[in-house]
């Protein structure tokens, strides 16, 4: 199963490594990733593959990291067949988040 996450990281030492390490330790592999600086932090977009592990539990595990400001799991739309598509979609959606037409599940800290 492939899942997409959008994770906002604070600009702190080790934030990316800590997050990726947790994801892999919890049984998910990273298929594709993109990272960019944004609004004083970093936006990490990931496509993950898992077998039998629950992505919602993973999202909660990620969200408890101190470096992580928010985690959103993006539901893939049919045309989003690659991570590039997801990133493209995110790029379109992010500046005007209230007009986001996709389904995003906010994981509270």
């Amino acid at each position: 199963m492939s899942v997409q996450f959008e994770i906002r990281l604070s600009l702190t030492e080790g934030a990316l490594l800590r997050t990726l390490g947790l994801i892999q330790r919890r049984g998910f592999s990273v298929d594709e990733m993109a990272l960019r600086n944004q609004q004083g932090g970093q936006l990490l977009s990931l496509s993950l593959e898992s077998e039998g592990r629950c992505p919602n539990i993973l999202a909660r595990q990620i969200s408890r990291l101190h470096d992580v400001e928010s985690v959103e799991r993006l539901e893939s739309e049919s045309w989003q067949t690659t991570m590039a598509d997801c990133v493209h979609a995110l790029g379109k959606l992010l500046p005007v988040r209230e007009q986001n037409s996709g389904v995003a599940i906010e994981m509270g800290r």
């Binding site: 030492e13 080790g14 490594l17 800590r18 390490g21 947790l22 330790r25 990291l65 101190h66 470096d67």
Partner: peptide, 16 residues
């Protein structure tokens, strides 16, 4: 040490 302990601490710092 920061890298070694990433999976076994709740959080970590290097003071710069």
């Amino acid at each position: 040490m920061f890298g070694i302990t990433l999976p076994i601490v709740k959080h970590s710092y290097i003071v710069r």
